[in-house]
Design a binder for these strands. Structure first.
Lengths: 195, 195
DNA sequence: CAGATGACAGATATTGAAATCTGTCATCTG
DNA sequence: CAGATGACAGATTTCAATATCTGTCATCTG
């Protein structure tokens, strides 16, 4: 009856992350998760209806950690142009570190992301909402010009695909990557700057 | 002895494209190619040292067709800003049509591209050289500003990854795709425009 | 004798039987 | 009786035997 012993979604998610870390996306099974928790796999299905749902929840959790970090940048004190650059730099940095520090785990989560595109789309919507907020702030101060802020936010996000989409991770360690990133951002900032 | 009967690299490449079209990237074999030509597979190896080399040559051919179309845009009469937009529009259009018109064939060539990254890198270098030429022209006319034309060309190419990299093909038929493309290009053009 | 052939060894892919996994549910238990 | 269990059916994966393919080369042929 100790709280550690109660089977909760939270504990299941933690165990699932563990199993994924240890076995990789392809070999992680619900049976493994149950075994790690010392319960039958039927009990896991009491909290998550399907394996896909469980993996979706783990994916959401992983992406939300990045969203939280970036939300702090949005709330930060910088001027809009500096904030926008900082936001993208933080995004690129976070991804680059995740990919470089533990490539296997990054691969595992990349597989999860590919099989949970709905979760990823929701994540992208959150990120473009954050971008919209920064743009809004800049337009309000007369620093940015944008006919449609939402569309512009989306365009900024897509123009930087190369630097945040996991499929491009192999290129993030290329020598010229940082320079390309800086140049793209400079172009985009000039592109939205009020004249 | 009719010229149709002489075994040439050209004929082998054509037959290979045919076999790839018919069987797909995974199942196309050198034996298939030889069979299609009515020769033994040993003869194919007289012209292409390995299967990888043959597939690389087919990949190069496929990419070169796009390069040729875009070279015409580079040689065209438009003003640099219009030419730059036209060049990217032609690139996006070409890719979108290839992907939409025959998805299976597009998948096949996407697989070839993935396994021939050296060929793809050479292709990307050609494309950025074309971009460099357009930028050069614009800078010469005082229409563009760019501290380093080569780096800027590369940045423009990477900022449009979303619209030409085959891994993003599924998103090309999304409703907002064209609007995103237009917006990104507008931002980039404003970004390089001389003040 | 230039160019094609086909037999061959080792590498890779296919196949089908056996093992494991997913998702359900009647039953058990504190 | 809320929540866990484990046996079960059908789906999926694994594994090992078999078949096919790649790349070489001694031999053939026009």
């Amino acid at each position: 009856m100790a709280p550690t012993e109660t089977l909760t979604p939270e504990r299941i998610l933690a165990a699932t992350e563990d199993v994924l870390r240890r076995h990789g996306a392809a070999k992680a099974t619900v049976v493994d998760v149950a075994r790690a928790l010392g319960v039958s796999h039927g009990s896991v299905y009491r909290h998550f209806g399907t394996k896909a749902e469980l993996r979706g929840a783990v994916t959401r959790r992983w992406l939300d950690r990045t969203t939280a970090v970036l939300a702090e940048v949005v709330a930060g004190p910088e001027e809009p142009p500096a904030k926008l650059r900082l936001w993208f730099a933080a995004l690129f940095d976070a991804k680059r570190h995740k990919a470089g520090d533990d490539p296997e785990l990054f691969d595992t989560y990349s597989v999860l992301a590919r099989e949970n595109s709905d979760v990823v789309y929701a994540h992208i919507d959150e990120l473009t909402d954050q971008l919209t907020a920064i743009l809004q702030e800049g337009v309000g101060q007369g620093r940015f010009e944008a006919p449609d802020i939402g569309v512009t936010a989306r365009a900024l996000f897509e123009a930087t695909t190369q630097f945040h989409d996991p499929v491009h991770a192999p290129e993030w360690s290329r020598p010229g990557a940082q320079q390309s990133f800086d140049t793209v951002l400079t172009l985009l900032l000039r592109g939205i700057a009020a004249r």
